[in-house]
Simulated assay, not measured.
Amino acid sequence: MNATGQPGERLDECESLRGIAIVLVFFYHFLGSLRGYMPNPQASYASALFFGGSIGVDLFFVLSGFLLSLPYIRGSPMVLRQFFGNRALRILPMYYLMVLAGAAWKGDWRAAMHAALFQNISLDTLLPFGLVWWSLAIEVQFYLALPLAIWLARRKQGRYLLATVLLGLCFCYWKLATPAASEFWAALRSTLLGRWPQFAIGIAAAWTHHHYGPVLRSLSVRQRRWLGTSVALAAIAMIDVLATHSLRQFGMLQFGYWYANYLYVSILWAVFMVALTDLLPLFRKVVVNPVLHRIGLWSYSIYLVHAVCIVFAVVRLDIRPSDELLTHHFSNLMLFIYMAGATLLVSATTYQLIERPFLRLKHSRFLLIGKVREDVM
């Protein structure tokens, strides 16, 4: 379905949002390879979204909560074989290819076995291949938790238990999000306990889209256009303000000293997403277009491949991050073309040869779930 609510159509907005998310993540690692990830007191509002592009991961998490919960919010039955089969076909083939490549490159098959089971994954697991795998481990944990949450939400007594669980999760998040978190709680930040609010925000956005989307879409074109523009621009402006403050004060250290920033950014992404899907921002075609749509289709391959391409280029060219390096505009442009071109070439190839055959298998098994096409999930 799309913003008009017609069954069987694609949520093109979400595919383009995936494109935006992966572009932000790519710039985050590309610019980080030039300057590093330390705080930058001189960071400008104009560049903060790209230097602080880790917010693209927040958008990915919100999108997962939105797309995976929407069919069941619409009343589709939860069939575990169907749900887990689709999830496996979506993420495992490309992921296991990268695990095999990382194991062959590093010669550490023990770490590869743990990674294949989404265990003991950190930023340096089979580096550089495993630089982004920590987020996939959290995704898998969400896949395991979502069916149980849906089962509880659909039963009267289960809703009471679900509310109790949510209170416990709020307590856990409060303990680990504080800058003074103990070592025990801080270690849980890279698990679902540390990121569950982002998925929950996506689920809340899906609920809003389902229950209030028809009301928003019933407004006149003029009302939808100006309301959508105002809300979407306000959300992006606030995300930029948060990214600028985070970059100036913390840089990469945000993870330890301002962890709640991820929560604030996710709320704003959800607001932007609802405005884009149910209203008509004036700049909608800037966001929802064939280029970002194509990048969104390739986003999973790009996500798994881009860090490898960037790190290999950094090592091969002996790049040493510094503020001075950012002033070499022409050479940086050539470097960007080199890294981005290599990433897109490899990603387009792996999408066609690895992802697409399994996506076709997934589509042939279960095309529609709750009137939402499986190729957007």
Rank of each mutant, 00 (worst) to 15 (best):
N261W: 04
R316M: 07
F50Y: 11
R195Q: 13
L176Y: 15
Y45S: 15
L361C: 08
V288Q: 00
P7Q: 10
R87P: 02
A103D: 01
W258E: 08
H293R: 11
L161A: 15
I138G: 00
H245W: 13
P147C: 08
L361I: 11
L167T: 14
R155T: 15
I310C: 04
L282E: 10
L176R: 06
G75Y: 11
I55E: 07
E355F: 07
L344V: 12
S301D: 05
W196D: 01
N289T: 07
V288F: 01
G202W: 02
Y95Q: 05
H211Q: 15
Y257G: 13
A180P: 02
L345S: 15
L176V: 11
A180R: 11
L282P: 07
K285V: 08
N261T: 12
A137F: 01
Q119A: 08
N332T: 07
F83E: 00
Y300N: 05
N86S: 11
N289P: 02
N40K: 02
L131K: 05
T4W: 00
D240S: 14
T343H: 01
K285S: 07
G107K: 08
G5T: 02
L127T: 04
V62H: 03
P77G: 05
L126D: 01
P321W: 14
C172M: 14
N289Y: 08
S64V: 09
P357W: 03
A145R: 05
L253E: 12
M113K: 15
R10C: 04
H245G: 06
P197D: 03
S364P: 07
L31A: 03
E355D: 13
R222E: 13
I22C: 11
F66I: 09
G370L: 04
L49R: 03
S364L: 08
I22V: 14
T343D: 00
A48C: 11
H114W: 13
A232M: 15
M339T: 15
T208V: 12
G296P: 05
Q157C: 09
L31N: 01
L162I: 13
S190D: 10
E374A: 12
I239P: 00
E139L: 05
P197E: 01
L148R: 09
A43M: 12
V241I: 12
R316G: 08
P179M: 13
G194T: 03
T229L: 10
L227A: 13
I267C: 04
V376L: 04
T4E: 03
P179L: 13
H363K: 11
P290Q: 10
Y212Q: 14
N261Q: 13
N261A: 12
A149P: 00
G19W: 01
A153F: 02
M273S: 03
S16C: 13
L92S: 07
H329T: 05
N86C: 06
N2K: 06
A137G: 07
D323I: 10
A234Q: 06
A205Q: 00
G194A: 09
R10G: 01
L227I: 13
F330Y: 13
L325E: 07
L279T: 02
Q82I: 05
V165M: 14
A307G: 07
V215W: 04
L24Q: 03
C170Q: 11
Q198K: 15
F199H: 02
A186D: 09
Y95P: 04
T350F: 15
W105I: 06
E374R: 09
T208D: 06
